[in-house]
Structure formats: C-alpha cells, structure tokens
Measured scan of single mutants.
Amino acid sequence: MKHYEVEILDAKTREKLCFLDKVEPHATIAEIKNLFTKTHPQWYPARQSLRLDPKGKSLKDEDVLQKLPVGTTATLYFRDLGAQISWVTVFLTEYAGPLFIYLLFYFRVPFIYGHKYDFTSSRHTVVHLACICHSFHYIKRLLETLFVHRFSHGTMPLRNIFKNCTYYWGFAAWMAYYINHPLYTPPTYGAQQVKLALAIFVICQLGNFSIHMALRDLRPAGSKTRKIPYPTKNPFTWLFLLVSCPNYTYEVGSWIGFAIMTQCLPVALFSLVGFTQMTIWAKGKHRSYLKEFRDYPPLRMPIIPFLL
C-alpha cells in the first residue's frame, strides 16, 4: 500500500511549517490536523484551516487524503483561524445574560430607577406577564442548547462571544429598562391586545421548539449528516411545506408577539434587527439546500412563505 507525503505551508508566506512522512492514504484531514498539532501545539485542530490552494476553501475534517486531487506528495496550505471557543459555551453565555439582566430590572434592584423604587413591584399585569415570557424564552434556549441542538461545527472564533453578548445583553437591558420602569405605560388596547400578543408568542414558541426537535431527529448524534427536513405529524412542522427555516419564522413571530404585548420600541427594534439577521441566515441555508439536494422542494422560500 502506497503512503503519502504531506507538506504543510503557510498560506500567506509559503513557508514550510511541517512535513509529514508515510501518511496513510485513508487518513482524514482531521487526522492530519492532529499530526500537525504534534509539531505545532500552539495551533490545536480547531484553529487550523487546511486547504489545497492558499486562497481556496477550507477542507472538511472528514475529507480523505486519497480522494483529494493531489499526488502522493501533497501540499496543503495552513491558515490560523485564531483562538476558538465551543458553540455550546457561546450559546449558554449569550442566553444566560439576558435572563439575569432582565430580572435585575424586573425586581428593580438599587441604583436603576431611584431609591424610592428599590425592590418595588409594578401594578401592571402586563409587566409581570412580559417577565414570565422573556424568562421562559431564554430558559427554553438554554435547555435546547444543552439537550436538543446538535452542532455541525464544534467551535467558533473567540471574538464572537463578545459580539454576541453585546447584542443580546445590550438589547435585554434596553428593553427591560423601559418595560419595568415605574412610569411604564400599558398597551393602548389593554387586555385584548395583551391576550392576542400572548397567543402569538406561545404559538410561536411551541412552533420553534417543534422545529428544533424535528431538525434534531434528522441528524444522528456525533454526525454531520444533512438531510432535507420534511413536515412530521406535528402540525407545527407543517411550515416546512413553505419555508426552509421555519425555526427562524417562529422565532421572529415570538418577538413580534412580545413587541405587541409590551408596546415597547426597543423590543420592536430588537425584532427588526433579529429578523434582518435571521433572513440572512435563512437565505444562506436555503441556497445550501438547493445546491446540495437536486430534489429539494421548489415551493419553499427561505423564511416567509411566498415572499422571502
């Protein structure tokens, strides 16, 4: 059985960083990364991007050496992705923050609204209902991160945790300040508006959870398998008939419901920014589905049925 020789060059300087002799033909890129780490321990596998061309796409960890368009002496180019952190850690951090930050404003801890309001309670029912909904949303997200989601990528750049936390924590503080303010004004149409908004919120939260469970069942634990998601017997998953990412559709719907319930401008802005970002993600995933699966359902749109 022939063996391969693998040289790894710096993608920027073309400097030879490592030479691997007698590499098995069936070795994966993940195994080559581990061998590279032995000579350069500062670059652990998650930091490494190996590619066939200095400006090309990163090879997948599961790619097999003998199936790549290389000879028995293969040249790979290395790029440092920077310090990495696990997706689970990032999600837990960015979701735990809003949960606790919101509660600080809800309980009106000292130095927020003035001494005479310390630890007082709002007289408006919608304020307490909003706290329950907000807390439920982020507790749900935390539990899904721990027990439901299966991540195709193990890590992301460390800098992302600061960007994500600034976004989630900042908006949580902004909306919580106004919703729990002693001078907060309840919704214009009173109980009817709150009940309608609560119904929207609850339905969308159930829908979002149902989609996450359906997506989880598509991917076996520990794998990166991708399949076309289809509706199940659960009615909340029937939205798969019309959109590629109904989890985002339901998520946006939840925040629209919360915005109607609280009639709070920061919540509306958070919903708008979230919708914009999720639309970008949904379009990317939709394109990926179309590219990977020739039999992908043609009627589906990325996030909004028939429109977007």
Rank of each mutant, 00 (worst) to 15 (best):
2 K>R: 09
2 K>V: 10
3 H>S: 08
3 H>Q: 04
3 H>R: 12
6 V>G: 04
7 E>D: 07
8 I>K: 08
9 L>P: 05
10 D>S: 09
13 T>K: 07
16 K>A: 11
17 L>R: 11
18 C>Y: 08
19 F>C: 04
20 L>R: 10
20 L>M: 05
23 V>Q: 00
26 H>D: 11
27 A>R: 01
27 A>P: 04
29 I>L: 07
30 A>N: 12
35 L>I: 02
36 F>G: 14
39 T>A: 12
40 H>Y: 08
40 H>I: 07
44 Y>D: 14
45 P>I: 05
45 P>H: 04
46 A>I: 14
46 A>T: 12
48 Q>H: 08
50 L>C: 11
51 R>Q: 06
55 K>W: 08
56 G>S: 09
60 K>V: 00
60 K>A: 14
61 D>L: 09
66 Q>T: 04
67 K>E: 12
70 V>A: 11
71 G>S: 11
72 T>S: 13
73 T>S: 08
75 T>I: 09
75 T>D: 14
75 T>L: 02
77 Y>S: 04
78 F>W: 03
79 R>G: 04
79 R>V: 01
79 R>W: 10
80 D>R: 15
83 A>M: 14
83 A>F: 03
83 A>P: 12
84 Q>L: 09
84 Q>Y: 05
85 I>Y: 15
87 W>C: 05
91 F>T: 02
92 L>Q: 13
93 T>L: 13
94 E>W: 01
94 E>P: 14
95 Y>C: 09
95 Y>S: 05
95 Y>N: 09
96 A>D: 10
99 L>G: 04
101 I>E: 05
101 I>C: 07
102 Y>P: 04
102 Y>I: 02
107 F>S: 08
107 F>T: 06
109 V>G: 12
110 P>S: 09
111 F>N: 10
113 Y>C: 10
113 Y>F: 10
114 G>S: 09
115 H>L: 09
116 K>V: 14
116 K>Q: 01
118 D>A: 03
118 D>V: 08
119 F>P: 14
127 V>P: 00
128 H>F: 11
130 A>V: 06
131 C>T: 13
132 I>R: 02
134 H>F: 07
135 S>Y: 00
135 S>C: 10
137 H>D: 00
138 Y>L: 00
140 K>Q: 13
140 K>M: 07
141 R>H: 02
141 R>C: 03
144 E>K: 01
145 T>Y: 08
146 L>M: 00
147 F>Y: 03
150 R>G: 04
150 R>I: 15
150 R>E: 00
153 H>F: 06
157 P>A: 12
157 P>F: 15
157 P>M: 12
159 R>P: 06
161 I>N: 14
163 K>T: 07
163 K>R: 09
166 T>W: 11
167 Y>R: 15
169 W>T: 02
169 W>C: 08
170 G>V: 07
170 G>H: 01
171 F>I: 13
171 F>S: 09
172 A>P: 09
172 A>T: 10
174 W>G: 08
174 W>Q: 04
174 W>E: 02
177 Y>F: 07
181 H>M: 02
182 P>S: 05
186 P>F: 14
190 G>M: 11
191 A>S: 08
191 A>R: 05
191 A>L: 12
192 Q>P: 06
194 V>L: 10
195 K>Q: 03
195 K>G: 15
197 A>V: 09
197 A>P: 11
199 A>S: 05
201 F>M: 11
202 V>S: 02
205 Q>K: 02
205 Q>W: 10
207 G>F: 15
209 F>V: 10
210 S>G: 04
212 H>F: 05
213 M>T: 10
213 M>I: 09
215 L>P: 02
216 R>S: 09
217 D>V: 05
221 A>N: 08
222 G>C: 02
222 G>A: 13
222 G>V: 07
223 S>F: 05
223 S>T: 00
224 K>R: 10
230 Y>R: 02
231 P>D: 01
231 P>F: 01
231 P>T: 04
231 P>G: 01
232 T>I: 07
234 N>R: 01
234 N>P: 00
234 N>Y: 12
235 P>S: 06
238 W>E: 14
239 L>V: 07
241 L>V: 12
241 L>F: 15
243 V>E: 12
244 S>F: 03
247 N>S: 10
247 N>K: 06
248 Y>S: 12
250 Y>F: 12
253 G>M: 15
256 I>R: 07
257 G>P: 01
259 A>D: 08
261 M>W: 04
264 C>S: 10
264 C>R: 07
266 P>S: 07
270 F>S: 07
271 S>L: 10
272 L>I: 01
272 L>V: 10
273 V>T: 10
278 M>T: 09
281 W>M: 13
283 K>Q: 11
283 K>N: 07
285 K>V: 14
286 H>F: 02
291 K>D: 00
292 E>R: 11
295 D>E: 06
295 D>C: 14
298 P>A: 07
302 P>A: 09
303 I>V: 09
304 I>P: 14
305 P>Q: 06
305 P>T: 03
305 P>V: 02
306 F>Y: 09
307 L>V: 12
